[in-house]
Computed example of a mutant assay.
Amino acid sequence: MSESANTPTAPHHAPGASVRHTRAKGEPRFPDGPMADPAGSHFERRIRSFQPRRSRVTAGQADALQRLWADRGLDIDGHAVDLPALFGNDRPVVLEIGFGMGEATAQMAAADPGTNILAVDVHTPGQGNLLGLAERGGMTNIRVANGDAIILLREMLAPDSLAGLRVYFPDPWPKKRHHKRRLIQPEFLDLAATRLAPDAIVHCATDWEPYAEQMLEVLEAHPMFVNSRPEGGFAPRPAFRPLTRFEGQGLDKGHVVNDLLFRRVQPDDQP
């Protein structure tokens, strides 16, 4: 019997047929892309303010994750990050937490090339989509971070290293028993204040009015932040924040969108 008779042969596929790769247990979904759990169990457990979403990654998004992650991606693994080295320049950096599919982030980056945007999310399709948008638009001032923004702030960023913080349409966790999961809480602002430079702007937006009221209450009570509106209260949507498709759908349903813009101050600088 010949040697070839005992050698397993590859399954036969018709010419042009697509072959679906089945990942082995433990094999990364995107070998050159974002890690599945970058921080692992190395940091203290806490109440999570985000809910990971699993949805289909398109071929274009997967391609962007594979090709661009090494240069434009950051896994939130707890190791200190040098922001000038990450972006290749020393321009001011704004942190955006939760960017969805990234359309608004890309528009803001294109409109303000002198500002770097470090955009954090755990939604893999959105990560790939934003990387693709940045590449097609020639935007070099976007970096996409994968993982828990709290670990990024607490473990990886230097004090006073951020020029701004954007939190647009975070999960409102509408049920009362889940309110503790909302991101904008006193403890979160305590941490954020240590990473924001003086005069940095915290900009939040939500279409969930009870959450907007809580955001306003928490921000107004914090000694390190002051409302950028002298008369207080909510701010009109600034021109630099694009009207997103999600927001437009909410407005069509009669939702009220509230923006909040607060400036980071020293305690003795408060009016």
Rank of each mutant, 00 (worst) to 15 (best):
I142W: 01
I76E: 11
T115G: 03
Q127W: 01
L95N: 05
A85Q: 15
L74F: 03
L162M: 15
L65E: 00
P31H: 07
L65R: 00
D75Q: 05
G102V: 15
A39I: 01
P34Q: 08
R54F: 06
G164P: 10
R45C: 14
N89I: 07
P52E: 14
L118Y: 09
G138M: 09
L74Q: 02
P92K: 15
N146Y: 05
G40C: 14
R67T: 02
P92M: 03
A85F: 04
Q51E: 07
G100Y: 04
P38W: 04
L68N: 04
L152A: 14
R67L: 05
A163T: 09
R45P: 09
R91L: 12
D148R: 12
L133W: 04
A134P: 05
V144P: 09
A158W: 02
T115N: 03
H79L: 03
L95F: 06
L130Y: 02
A119Y: 11
Q66N: 14
G147L: 06
A145M: 03
A104V: 04
D121P: 02
D160Q: 10
R136N: 15
T115A: 11
Q51C: 12
L83F: 02
D112H: 08
A104H: 10
Q107H: 12
N116E: 04
S161P: 09
G132C: 07
A39W: 01
R45D: 15
I150V: 11
S49W: 00
G147F: 01
I142M: 08
T115Q: 09
V93E: 06
G137C: 05
L131F: 01
R136F: 07
F43P: 01
R143G: 02
P38T: 02
R46Q: 08
R136D: 13
V81S: 00
D71G: 06
I76N: 10
L68K: 06
R29I: 02
W69C: 02
F50Y: 14
F43N: 04
D63V: 02
A110N: 07
I76W: 05
F43E: 06
L86R: 01
A110Y: 08
A145P: 01
G100Q: 11
R45Y: 13
P159R: 12
N146V: 04
A158V: 05
P125D: 15
A134C: 13
R143K: 15
G126R: 00
V120M: 05
S41Y: 06
T140M: 12
A119D: 09
V144Y: 08
A119V: 09
D90S: 07
F50R: 10
L83P: 07
I76P: 00
L118I: 08
P34S: 11
P159A: 15
R154W: 10
A80C: 13
F87V: 14
L131A: 08
A145D: 01
L86Y: 05
R46A: 08
D148Y: 01
F99A: 00
V94T: 15
V57A: 14
R29P: 06
A109Q: 11
V93I: 06
L65H: 00
